[in-house]
Write a protein that binds this DNA or RNA. Structure first.
Lengths: 189, 189
DNA sequence: TATACTGGAGAACGTAGGTTCTCTGCGGTG
DNA sequence: CACCGCAGAGAACCTACGTTCTCCAGTATA
C-alpha cells in the first residue's frame, strides 16, 4: 500500500473517531483498528498523535469552509448567502449523531495544553469570520453585522450538539434574517 | 478536618483545575496537590473522579444561574434583564483566562462517553433557556425570541473563550437589543 | 500509662495508552 | 535458487492515571 493511501486511511479513521468520541478518549489502538493499518505504519507517516490531531483539524476546516461556500454558491444575493450559512449548518446538524462544533470541542479538550490545536481552531474561526465579513460587505450592511451572525452560528452548533436537535439552525437563521434586515434598513437610513 | 471542609476544599480545587485545563488532563494527583488533602481522604468523600466531575458541574450551574439572575436583579424591565445576561457574560469573560463555557467544554470532552456529564450539561442549558424564556414572556415578546437570545449567548461564550477577547459579549448584546426591539415591534403590530 | 482501634498518608496496583523495538516475511539481486 | 536487506506487524516498554491497600500515627479507653 502506498503512503498516500495509508495516510488517507489513517486521517479518515481519525476524523471519524475524534468527531464521534472526542480526542483524548480515542487511543492509538482504536485508531489502528479503525484504519486497518499498523501502528508502525501510522508512526511511519505521522510523527505523533498530536500531529494526527492537528492534520485532522486542518482538513476538517478545509472541508467545512468548502461546504459553507458551496451552500452559498447555490443562491445569488449576499443576503441569501448569509442565510445559506444556516442552511449549511442545518444540513450538518442532520447528519448522524452531530455532537457540536468539532473545533469548539477540540479547543475545550485540548486548548490549554496543546497550543497547535488552539491555533488551528482559531484559524478555522477566523476563516469563517472572514467569509461572513466578506458577504456582509457585499450586502452593503455595516461591518458590525458580521460578528453577530457568527455568534449565532457558533451558538447554534453547540446547542444542536448538546440537545441533538437541528432546530437550533432554524432559530439562528430566523434571528439572522432579522439582524440582516435591520442592518440593511439602518444602512439605507 | 471535618468532612464538609474537606469536601469543599476538594470541590473548589477541582473546579479551578477543570475550568483551567479541562477534565481529562487533570489527574487525581493534581487534584490532591491542589486541594491539599490526601487521595484516601478524597476517596472517602467521593466514590470516584466521575462523581467529583458531576458535582463540580452541578455547583458551577448553581453559581452561574445565581450570577445571571443577580445581574438581572440590578435592572427593572424584562428587556433590561435580557440585556443584563450579556453584561453578566462580559463580567465572566473579563475574569482571568476565560476559556469558554465550562459546560460546552465538558460536553465536548466527555459527552459521548459520560452520560451523567451530558445530563448535567443539558440541565444547565435548560435552566438558562428557562430563565430567558421567562423574561421574554414578561416582556411581551413572542416566545421565538428566547432561543435566539440563548444562541447568541452560547456563541459569545465559545468565541470569547477561543479568542480570549470579551468583545463578543458586546457584539452579542447589540444583536440581542436589535432582536428584542424587532420582536417587540412585531408584537405590537 | 499502655493497648487497641480507627482514620488517613501516600505508595502500590492494575490498566490504559503513546511510542518504540524486535522479529518476521517478502522482495530484489546476484 | 539462495541470501540479504528493508519495511512493517504487533508485542513490549515506559509513563500516566484512577483506585485500592498497607502501614503508621493519634486518640480514646481501661
Amino acid at each position: 500500500m502506498d503512503d498516500d493511501k495509508a495516510r488517507e486511511l489513517a486521517l479518515e479513521a481519525a476524523e471519524r473517531l475524534f468527531t464521534a468520541r472526542g480526542i483524548q478518549t480515542v487511543g492509538m489502538d482504536d485508531l489502528r483498528n479503525e484504519a486497518g493499518i499498523s501502528l508502525k505504519r501510522i508512526y511511519g507517516l505521522f510523527p505523533s498523535k498530536d500531529a494526527i490531531v492537528e492534520q485532522v483539524l486542518v482538513r476538517l476546516n478545509r472541508s467545512w469552509m468548502q461546504g459553507v461556500i458551496e451552500f452559498g454558491e447555490r443562491v445569488d444575493s449576499p443576503r441569501d448567502k448569509l442565510l445559506a450559512v444556516f442552511d449549511f449548518l442545518e444540513d450538518r446538524f442532520r447528519q448522524g449523531d452531530y455532537r457540536g462544533c468539532v473545533f469548539i470541542n477540540a479547543f475545550g479538550e485540548l486548548g490549554p495544553t496543546a497550543p497547535l490545536v488552539a491555533e488551528v481552531v482559531r484559524r478555522h474561526k477566523a476563516d469563517f469570520q472572514g467569509y461572513v465579513s466578506g458577504l456582509v460587505e457585499s450586502s452593503g450592511a455595516p461591518a458590525s453585522l458580521a460578528p453577530q451572525l457568527v455568534l449565532l452560528a457558533e451558538g447554534a452548533q453547540s446547542t444542536a450538539g448538546i440537545f441533538g436537535d437541528p432546530v437550533a439552525a432554524g432559530q439562528a437563521r430566523a434571528a439572522a434574517a432579522t439582524l440582516i434586515d435591520a442592518a440593511l434598513v439602518g444602512a439605507r437610513a
